[in-house]
């Protein structure tokens, strides 16, 4: 099932990707081919097959003890931020 232009635009929005309108037909085509390829899975018999949560079979999550191991490094880390004030990372105003 080929994707529509509107679907491509919506996916781009969810991913916060800005597309040049001229690029959209190309993505309609290439994304539709990817979906079609994955669609082959619909034809596989999956009765009795558990959904796979991870590609490493048999490995399970390890746990760490509840202990504080990290020090305060905010002065160092905030050197990477474009703007900080009073210890806060500053971003353009977001109000819902």
């Amino acid at each position: 099932m080929p994707l529509t232009r509107a679907q491509v635009e919506r996916i781009a929005h969810l991913c916060r990707l800005e597309l040049d309108p001229a690029e959209i037909p190309q993505f309609e085509h290439s994304l539709s081919r990817i979906i079609e390829f994955i669609g082959e899975l619909d034809r596989a018999d999956t009765a009795g097959v558990l959904p796979m949560a991870h590609p490493l079979p048999g490995l399970l999550q390890r746990l760490r003890p509840d202990a504080v191991t990290e020090q305060d490094e905010h002065a160092l880390l905030q050197q990477n931020a474009p703007a900080v004030a009073a210890g806060l990372y500053l971003v353009p105003k977001v109000i819902e």
Partner: peptide
């Protein structure tokens, strides 16, 4: 808990901003 769910940073309430946020939390 004393530490965060996926990192070893502390969870205490009321600390100065961003003093309890480590690389994983960021």
């Amino acid at each position: 808990t004393r530490s965060k769910i996926f990192s070893g940073a502390p969870t205490a309430y009321g600390a100065p901003p961003n003093t309890q946020a480590c690389l994983v939390d960021l």
